[in-house]
Simulated assay, not measured.
Amino acid sequence: MKATWNGQTIAESDKTVVVEGNHYFPRESVNPEYLQESATHSTCPWKGEASYFSLNVAGKDNRDAAWYYPAPKDAAKQIAGHVAFWKGVTVSE
């Protein structure tokens, strides 16, 4: 699977984990040069607290376009160390 935005590949892996229709990429498959830590957090009742990254690609920002669970609950332990995307990021094979 490949995640792209603004003409660049953000992440690529053949070992994504699909949860609720979202592909979670192993963190090591995500290009760190495009990620910026965000102060945004949200809570899922069964996955736990999510943290976010904004993307900066070729001078364009996409705020909070990636999320991850630093300490997922037991029901979601398979996504520990993984990152998912939304907000216009294309995920395709």
Results as ranks from 00 to 15, higher is better:
Trp46Phe: 11
Lys2Phe: 02
Thr90Phe: 06
Ala58Glu: 14
Glu20Gln: 11
Gly48Tyr: 04
Pro32Thr: 09
Val83Arg: 03
Ala65Gly: 02
Ala58Asp: 15
Pro32Met: 08
Val83Asn: 00
Thr40Asp: 10
Lys2Asn: 13
Glu93Lys: 14
Ser42Lys: 06
Ala50His: 12
Gly21Trp: 01
Asp64Phe: 06
Glu49Trp: 00
Ala3Gln: 02
Ile10Gly: 04
Thr9Asp: 02
Lys60Asn: 13
Tyr68Asn: 02
His41Phe: 11
Val89Lys: 06
Gly48Pro: 04
Gly59Asp: 04
Val91Thr: 12
Asn6Gln: 12
Lys60Asp: 13
Ile10Phe: 08
Glu28His: 14
Phe85Thr: 00
Ser54Cys: 06
Asn56Thr: 14
Pro70Ile: 05
Asn62Pro: 06
Ser38Arg: 11
Ala84Gln: 01
Glu49Ser: 06
His23Arg: 11
Ala3Asn: 01
His41Val: 15
Ala80His: 11
His23Pro: 04
Ser54Met: 13
Ala50Asn: 07
Gly81Arg: 01
Ala75Phe: 01
Ser13Arg: 01
Pro70Arg: 03
Ala3Met: 11
Ala66Asn: 10
Ala58Met: 13
Val18Pro: 00
Asp14His: 08
Tyr69Glu: 08
Val57Asn: 03
Asp64Arg: 09
Ser51Phe: 06
Ser38Phe: 07
Asn56Ser: 13
Ala3Thr: 03
Val17Glu: 08
Pro70Val: 10
Leu35Val: 08
Tyr24Asn: 00
Ala80Ser: 12
His82Ile: 02
Glu20Asp: 10
Lys47Cys: 05
Arg63Phe: 10
Val57Met: 08
Trp67Arg: 07
Ala76Pro: 05
Ala58Leu: 12
Ala75Glu: 03
Thr40His: 14
Thr9Gly: 03
Val17Lys: 01
Thr9Met: 09
Glu49Gly: 03
Pro32Cys: 03
Lys2Val: 07
Gly7Leu: 06
Ser13Ile: 08
Ala3Phe: 10
Trp5His: 15
Asn22Val: 11
Trp5Pro: 01
Ala50Gly: 03
Gly7Lys: 05
His82Ala: 07
Gln78Leu: 13
Val89Phe: 10
Trp5Gly: 11
Val19Ser: 01
Glu93Phe: 08
Tyr24Thr: 02
Ala50Ile: 03
Trp86Asp: 00
Pro32Val: 04
Gly81Pro: 00
Val91Pro: 08
Ser42His: 05
Ala66Lys: 00
Trp86Tyr: 11
Ala50Asp: 04
Met1Trp: 10
Gly88Ala: 10
Thr9Arg: 08
Ala66Arg: 13
Ser38Ala: 08
Asp74Asn: 12
Tyr34Asn: 12
Cys44Trp: 13
Lys2Ser: 05
Ile79Phe: 02
Gln78Gly: 00
Glu93His: 10
Trp67Cys: 07
Tyr68Gln: 01
Ser51Arg: 14
Lys77Pro: 04
Glu20Tyr: 03
Phe85Leu: 01
Ala11Arg: 04
Trp46Asn: 06
Leu55Val: 10
